[in-house]
Design a protein around this nucleic acid. Structure first.
Length: 503
RNA sequence: GCCGCUAUCGUCUAGGGGUCAGGACACGUGGUUCUCAGCCACGGGACCGGGGUUCGAAUCCCCGUAGCGGUACCA
């Protein structure tokens, strides 16, 4: 089995295309097949090298490694269409010689006029066949006289073209609605329908899995396979991914490119797991489906994936569900990995200037507090901002904090707290011991005790576990000044500053 | 316009001639921890419309409707 993903490098990798790549990858990996990456850059105006690189980067980040491609080579190369021009030319000549194609000298203006007339008359707009019967000798003469021409495919008239789609079944088109389409443009570059067929055939692709938007191109391609004498591959057309308003997913709907999700702190396994479930669901293993059946690592997705289980209808991209999956995978990821991923967000927030060992291991120790209550890694620094920035006066102004202060005994607890803390609360036990001493002094317990302690030490009325957060404050406060970390006020200094502000 | 594809809770979906139409996300209520979150329990919520076939249709067929795609010297 040989499958391919063939993006055109004209922009960022979109989640819809990423899903197409994923389904190809899943099928290849699950069947010991070969996954090929081909760059369709025949549109020279819009294709950029930079875009190609970013697509490759995004695919790697997603974990969709390819076996053959522009950077790794392989027996079917080259893998950029711009480097395969000689192949297209040679097959175009073959088609010309066999009478399956002909030169067309129609100026663009005439083509446009024809189309307008068809539309106005309610006819399907298609090429009028003006140049269909120009004798080859005449064509050659005009070519030699430097007349511009395209090469068109001679579409057989009045026949039905049926192909089998693995996800949809048999699909039939009548060639009456298909005009003689362009194979080679006047500048010598191949058009899409021609290049794909040559490439898929030469690269011996067995399964063409692509977006539904290609379904009406397929009969043209089938015709080409026939004319060229190639055996057509199996086709599978995937439904599209839509936005909440049921229009194709676009920038209007927020983040749509893989790199945006990467930048915002989504984990690749969350994105791939989520994308796999749009339009595909694991075959229910008889009876009830386990609630966790949707959470699957890549290997399991690959093992269970089957084209036969792919749905027919378009799916709406749901950021909420993606967020849920991301939370799940963040909890599963190792703190070291998360710290490495998060460092840039701490840097952006000004909490970390350099990635020193001390700074990084401090951040690592913080993550378990934040990761359970955040959708994306990007939000982690905000969640932990109270550690790095402490302003007693500002905290007092916050309604939620003020509310806590109105609780009976709150001021007492705060006063006792500022007197009780005499050193760093290096761990949970030290924190508990301190809390007990405040409890003895004030007689307060439960919420009445912990709420005031929380607002005094963190400036927040809610947040990560208190007896985890407070030791973290003191650990940060004790780190050497060159740790790269923003300065952290110790819990003792916080308690005193807050007590003073309250008074 | 013409051609094609599609249609189950708000969303992703399972199922498929007789089911209490199942699950997940989201949502609501209650419980739980010093807190947001989390977690646990419970709850509301769907077969596009109309015909036909059938003892029986969400399921099969037809016709509508709607959405999407194509109708390029874009891919």
């Amino acid at each position: 089995m040989r499958v391919r993903f063939a993006p055109s490098p004209t922009g960022q990798l979109h989640v819809g295309n990423a899903r197409t790549a994923l389904f190809n990858w899943l099928l290849a990996r699950g069947h010991d097949g070969t996954f090929i990456l081909r760059i369709e850059d025949t549109d020279a105006e819009r294709s950029t090298k930079q875009s190609e690189e970013s697509i490759l980067d995004d695919l790697r980040w997603l974990g969709l490694e390819w076996d053959e491609g522009p950077d790794v080579g392989g027996g079917g190369g080259p893998y950029r269409q711009s480097e395969r021009l000689h192949l297209y030319t040679s097959y175009a000549n073959e088609l010309l010689a066999g009478g399956h194609a002909y030169y067309c000298f129609c100026p663009p203006q005439k083509l446009e006029d024809d189309r307008r007339k068809d539309l106005a008359a309610g006819r399907p707009p298609k090429y009028h066949g003006t140049c269909r019967s120009i004798p080859p000798e005449d064509a050659r003469r005009r070519l030699e006289a430097n007349e511009r021409a395209v090469i068109r495919f001679r579409v057989p008239e009045h026949i039905e073209v049926t192909f089998h789609d693995v996800v949809r079944g048999d699909v039939t088109f009548n060639t009456d609605v298909i005009g003689d389409f362009v194979l080679v443009r006047s500048d010598g570059r191949p058009a899409y329908n021609f290049a794909v067929v040559i490439d898929d055939a030469l690269m011996e692709i067995t399964h063409v899995i692509r977006g539904e938007d290609h379904i009406s191109n397929t009969p043209r391609q089938v015709l080409l396979y026939r004319a060229l004498g190639f055996a057509p591959p199996r086709f599978a057309h995937l439904s599209l991914v839509l936005g909440p308003d049921h229009t194709p997913l676009s920038k209007r709907h927020g983040a749509t490119s893989v790199s945006e999700f990467r930048e915002r702190g989504y984990l690749p396994e969350a994105l791939t797991n989520y994308l796999a479930l749009i339009g595909w669901s694991p075959r229910s293993s008889g009876g009830e489906v386990d609630g966790d059946a949707e959470l699957m690592p890549m290997e399991e997705l690959a093992r269970r994936f089957a084209l036969e289980d792919v749905g027919h209808s378009a799916g709406v991209f749901d950021p909420e569900k993606l967020a849920w999956m991301n939370r799940h995978y963040m909890k599963e990821a190792s703190p070291a990995r998360l710290a490495a991923e998060c460092a840039r967000f701490f840097q952006a927030r000004g909490f970390l200037s350099r990635k020193t060992d001390a700074g990084m291991s401090y951040i690592e120790s913080l993550l378990p507090m934040a990761v359970g209550s955040v959708d994306r890694l990007e939000e982690v620094p905000d969640r932990l901002a109270f550690l790095f920035a402490y302003d007693a006066a500002q905290a007092l102004e916050r309604p939620a904090v003020a509310e806590v202060l109105h609780e009976p005994g709150a001021r007492e607890v705060i006063a006792a707290l500022s007197e009780t803390i005499d050193g760093p609360l290096a761990d949970r036990n030290a924190f508990r011991a301190m809390a007990n001493r405040v409890k003895e002094k004030t007689g307060q317990k439960g919420k009445a005790l912990f709420h005031p302690i929380r607002v005094a030490l963190t400036g927040e009325s809610g947040g990560p576990e208190l007896d985890l957060a407070v030791p973290a404050i003191d650990r940060g406060a004790q780190l050497p000044g060159d740790s790269g970390l923003a300065k952290i006020l110790s819990s003792r200094d916080r308690a005193r500053a807050f007590a003073a502000a309250v008074r």
